[in-house]
């Protein structure tokens, strides 16, 4: 169950040792040659990456991989998923086991540099929060002095907890598990007073507790957690493909292009829409993709807003409002560079 970090880490070491020839070919060419994208996701975080009863993966992070597949292959289904714990994820990417990591991963400086990774944008602006049992009678995170906190190892969460309790001079105990499943079970069994995660993840995991109604999320947000897709450092072409897939979904929303109207929009007079949908210019080709790449993305996966609403929006069990993740023109901070 939980001991797969060792083989994975060893695999990573081997991968780093042996993958010279393979990786230099460029991930885009590799992906085209093998016919699918290997996408690293979580081991089950509703709304972001979660397998349904039939074993199909859904979620905001999954949609990003599906969108890349649509851009490259014209169909969103050429994706294989690798469920990864927080601890396994970077090794899996570094070693070439996966092509994209799209697993509620926070963009930080050290990950971007010394871990040999590149962040291709932010598909969810988040922040870290705390969840406690209601009967604890706590209303603010500042009342948590002496608490036991359950979390997952290898996360920014683990580091932020240390920062927060230390800077507020509160003693604490951190109990860090390797698998989310065990974190949740231990919290549910009362091993910890507090469960800490990205706020989105708190709402998602609360749904999986025995009595979701017995728990509340405290108001404090203690950190910035810009979550986004990650690729290997040193492969600019693939980096561009993933970055612009995300940008295309945002631009589509901004320009009102949806999965329902994308065909009609092709005849739009708006030059921005024309460029977006490949009617004018050769922007797809510049990325090494077919020129109608955005048509394929939007038709199959939808624009950013559609994906958000379908997976985590107000009409889903997570019921998250757009907030920071609204487009810049709607008061949020989702802002994509233009296609031109």
């Amino acid at each position: 169950m939980s001991k797969n970090i060792l083989p994975l880490a060893l695999g990573a070491a081997m991968g780093i040792v042996a993958s010279a020839a393979a990786a230099q070919a460029g991930t885009l060419d590799d992906v085209k040659a093998k016919g699918f994208i290997q996408c690293g996701v979580s081991q089950g975080l509703p709304g972001f990456s979660n397998p349904d009863a039939q074993g199909n993966w859904t979620g905001l992070d999954v949609d990003l991989c599906r969108a890349v597949s649509a851009a490259v292959f014209g169909t969103p289904d050429n994706v294989k998923y690798s469920p990864l714990s927080a601890k396994e994820r970077f090794t899996a990417l570094q070693s070439g086991e996966i092509d994209i990591l799209s697993r509620n991963t926070t963009w930080t400086l050290s990950r971007d540099t010394s871990l040999g990774l590149n962040f291709a944008g932010v598909n969810y602006y988040d922040g870290q929060g705390f969840m406690v049992r209601k009967d604890l009678g706590v209303a603010s995170a500042l009342e948590l002095s002496g608490a036991s906190v359950c979390t997952q190892t290898g996360t920014t969460t683990e580091l932020n907890i240390a920062d927060y309790f230390r800077s507020n001079n509160m003693p604490y105990e951190v109990v860090a598990f390797e698998k989310l499943e065990e974190v949740v079970k231990a919290y549910d069994a009362g091993r910890c007073d507090v469960f800490s995660n990205d706020a989105s993840g708190l709402y998602a995991t609360r749904l999986t507790l025995t009595n979701p109604g017995d728990h509340i999320v405290l108001p404090e947000i203690i950190s910035k957690e810009p979550l986004g897709p990650v690729v290997r450092h040193g492969d600019d072409q693939w980096f561009d493909v993933v970055k612009w897939t995300h940008n295309a979904m945002l631009n589509a929303e901004e320009l009102g292009v949806t999965s329902a109207n994308v065909e009609e929009m092709k005849s739009s007079d708006n030059p921005e829409v024309k460029r977006l949908l490949g009617v004018e210019g050769a922007f797809g080709e510049m990325l090494g993709l077919p020129n109608d790449w955005v048509v394929a993305i939007v038709k199959n996966v939808g624009n950013y807003g559609e994906s958000f609403d379908r997976n985590v929006g107000p009409n889903t069990p997570l019921a998250i409002s757009r907030g920071l993740n609204a487009l810049w023109k709607d008061g949020g901070i989702q802002y994509a560079a233009p296609i031109r």
Partner: peptide
């Protein structure tokens, strides 16, 4: 096998360090 139950042994803490630093 301690990692499974959050006991901070050598493999568990080494893994955390590996993850934070990338020094596999």
């Amino acid at each position: 096998l301690a990692v499974a139950i959050a006991f901070p042994d050598l493999v568990s803490l080494g893994g955390t360090v590996l993850n934070q630093t990338g020094q596999a």
